Each structure stands twice: as C-alpha cells, then as structure tokens.
Amino acid sequence: MTDSTAALPTGPSPDRRLRVLAAMSGGVDSAVAAARAAEAGHDVTGVHLALSANPQSFRTGARGCCTLEDSRDARRAADVIGIPFYVWDLAERFKADVVEDFVAEYEAGRTPNPCLRCNEKIKFAALLDKALALGFDAVCTGHYATVVVGADGHRELHRASDAAKDQSYVLGVLDEQQLAHALFPLGDTRATKEEIRAEAERRGLAVAKKPDSHDICFIADGDTQGFLARHLGTAEGDILDETGERVGTHTGAYGYTVGQRKGLRLGHPAPDGKPRYVLDISPVDNTVTVGPAEALDVTALTAIRPRWCGTPPAGPGAYTAQLRAHGAETPVTAELADGELRVAFAAPVRGVAPGQAVVLYDGTRVVGSATIATTTRAVRARG
C-alpha cells in the first residue's frame, strides 16, 4: 500500500491555462467549482446537460441537470461568473445508458447505482468525448474528490480532503485517461457545506441557498417502486422465509433489494419475533426470500466489469472497500482472476446486493471499482 499523495499537484497540467468545460447542474457545488476554475485563470465555458426529453417530468429542484429550473439557475450562475454558457441535449444518451440500464438491472434482481453509471457513461464519456473533440482540455464538476499526479507521473484519484463530503465512490469508474481530463476544484477544500454556500453568496451566486437533493434525479416523486412498476408492470409473487414457507406476497420482485427491512408487509411474524430482511431476490420465479439479520452476513464476493483508476493490481493485495456511496470502509483482500475481481472481507458485512459497486482503496487512493455479481454468505449456526 502507498502513502497518500495529496500534497502533489492536482488536476490536468495545472501549470498552464486550460480550456475547461464546466458541467453546471444548477446546484451550488458545480457553480462554485466553475467559479474557482475561472478564478484560477482557466478559460472556462459552462454547460448544462439536458437529460430529460420532458424536463417538467423531473422533480423541481432536483440535483443533477434535470429541470428547467436547474437550467435557468445554471445560466444565471454562469452570467455572474462571467463565462459563456450552453445547454447540451444528452437526453437520448441518458435514457439509454442510465434510465434503461437502471430498469433492466432491477428487472434482473440487481440493485444498480445510477449516479455511478451517469458519471461513467455521461459526464466522463459522452460529455468528455464531445469536449475533447471541441478542443477543451478538461471537464470540471462539483464533485468532492481529488486528482493527483503520482511520483511516476501517472494520475490518481484520491478521496476529498474532507472525508465527510467525499464522493470518490461514485467516481471509481473513471480510468486514468479520463482522470487526465478531469478537474474537481472542491476536492482539496476542508470547507463545510455551509462555508461553500457562504462562498457562493460572496460570489453573488443565487444558488447559495438552493437545497440539495440526494434522490434519483429521473424519478420525479422519489417513488422508486412506483417508477419500476410503471416500466415493468406488476406481477404477484410469493415472499418466502428461509424454510420455503410462504409468509407474504408482493406485486413485483424488482421492487425489493437485498438487506431491505421496511415495506415488506409480511402476513406472518418470525417465530422469534425479530425483524426480517430481504435475503434474496429471484426474478426467474418472481420470489423474494426473507430472514433474520445475521443471515445477511457476507464473507466474500465476486465482481465483474472491473475498471481501474490507473494500473490494475498485479496480484492479491490488502485494501479497504466501500460498498455504498456514503458507506464505511472495511478491510479486504482482493485479486483479479480470470477477468473478475474476487474480494474477501476481514469481517462479515451486511446488505451486500448484486448490482452494487465495490470500490477498492489503497489509503486515500481509489484503486478501481467493479459490479458485484455474486456473494458468499457466512454459515449460520442453528440450534
């Protein structure tokens, strides 16, 4: 494992003036990031991504380039900063690569992360490709993460200076080539969110007091199960306990995720009276299996489609892993074998669902990420 290189120069070619395309969602973070990039002397152009064919169908105030309100807020921020501003229509690409992928993953019994997919397919693929074709040097966003240049000249992705705001998990899909063209002006600040808002107010940005939203931007009312039902229809099935006994029914197995406790509507309480959790989802026979919390303990997993933020690991190694955007780190050993990432946990973890991303860290450095395919459960002792 290596020490943090957070003291090294950050971003792509920081010693020269860059042509920067600032992705402006209409929120405070991306506005301050664009302002900082311009203040640093870069030639900045703002762009708002129109990701919905019908922006009114997305929730008002949603964070993430989704509403007419957000587009107008982004334009006003660009005017205050004094940079050119455009709106780019990526609605069809977003629908295919993010929304349809989200629905297909749930239909297959997996639990996807649409923000991670958006970073991979939209902001640092479709947007970055277009930016480079137009002669820009880098794409700037309001993510809290840091790009540093290692001693060997390779760029690395590191956690933000303030771990409480760190967003490196959802950027773990970026490869070194993409990192070479990424700027995260907020990543090296230890300012609280209140201080970022105060900075926005000092700069005259009206978004300073705009509330954040952490919901999925393309689900207008925040009702994920209702959204999936509209796209996949309803199909009544059984909820089973560990013995195979029917303890309830559901209207679509896709509406559940491993580790879920609330909203199960079980007709029969557990014999011991303890809460039950979703253990498995089977789209083939449309069943959901529930059981006690300890049955969720996972000791190992296999993940597919690995993406590396630099050179892939040469062999087995000790790392820490993060399994959710705001989850804690846990010690693991991991190795790449036959194109799959195999991870073993030092202690059992719970709520690990196929479809989620596992992101590996070496200190503060993001090693890479992969999509969880299978898990190995701890053996439960029975009396």
Rank of each mutant, 00 (worst) to 15 (best):
Thr67Trp: 01
Ala125Ile: 02
Arg246Leu: 08
Tyr256Phe: 15
Gly317Leu: 07
Leu336His: 13
Val87Met: 12
Val247Trp: 07
Arg63Cys: 03
Met1Gly: 11
Thr2Pro: 04
Ala126Ile: 02
Glu201His: 10
Asp175Ile: 04
Leu266Asn: 13
Ile196Trp: 03
Phe218Ala: 11
Arg93Thr: 15
Arg63Glu: 07
Gly273Ile: 05
Val103Gly: 12
Leu179Tyr: 03
Thr5Pro: 03
His143Val: 01
Gly187Cys: 04
Ala34Ser: 03
Val258Leu: 06
Phe218Ser: 12
Thr234Arg: 03
Ser30Gly: 06
Leu323Ala: 09
Gly263Ala: 04
Glu107Ala: 15
Ala370Tyr: 04
Leu232Trp: 02
Thr10Lys: 13
Arg276Met: 07
Ala191Lys: 13
Leu205Gln: 03
Pro55Asp: 03
Gly327Asn: 03
Gly244Arg: 03
Leu240Thr: 11
Ala346Tyr: 06
His42Ile: 07
Ala138Asp: 11
Asp175Phe: 01
Cys65Tyr: 08
Arg261Cys: 10
Gln178Lys: 15
Ala325Trp: 00
Glu156Val: 00
Leu179Thr: 05
Thr257Ile: 13
Ala318Asn: 08
Arg202Gly: 00
Arg377Leu: 15
Asn113Leu: 12
Leu49His: 04
Pro312Ser: 08
Glu100Ser: 15
Thr364Val: 08
Ala38Leu: 01
Gln356Leu: 14
Val288Ile: 10
Phe184Leu: 02
Asp280Trp: 10
Asp29Arg: 10
Glu329Ile: 02
Asp3Trp: 05
Glu195Cys: 08
Asp297Arg: 13
Pro316His: 04
Thr10Ile: 13
Thr311Gly: 11
Thr371His: 05
Ile196Phe: 04
Ala370Leu: 04
Gly11Lys: 11
Leu21Gly: 12
His143Asn: 05
Pro211Trp: 01
Gly315Trp: 00
Pro84Ala: 11
Glu242Asn: 09
Pro306Ala: 00
Val288Gln: 07
Lys165Arg: 15
Gly339Ala: 12
Leu240His: 05
Gly327Ile: 05
Asp162Val: 00
Val103Trp: 07
Ala370Arg: 06
Gln178Glu: 14
Val359Thr: 14
Gly153Thr: 05
Lys123Ser: 14
Val139Ala: 14
Val99Trp: 06
Asp175Asn: 15
Met24Tyr: 09
Pro306Arg: 00
Ala96Cys: 08
Tyr86Leu: 15
Asp162Gly: 01
Ala346Lys: 09
Glu69Phe: 01
Val28Trp: 06
Ala321Gly: 14
Val139Ile: 10
Leu128Asp: 14
Arg63Tyr: 05
Arg36Asn: 03
Cys66Ala: 15
Val147Leu: 05
Lys121Cys: 15
Ser213Pro: 07
Ala357Lys: 07
Gly61Asp: 14
Gln167Gly: 00
Gly383Ser: 13
Phe58Glu: 12
Gly255Ser: 06
Arg76Met: 10
Val103Cys: 12
Ala74Glu: 10
Pro313Met: 05
Ser213Cys: 11
Arg307Trp: 02
His250Trp: 01
Val358Pro: 14
His231Trp: 05
Ala334Gln: 09
Arg76Asp: 15
Thr371Val: 14
Asp101Gly: 08
Ala235Trp: 00
Leu336Tyr: 06
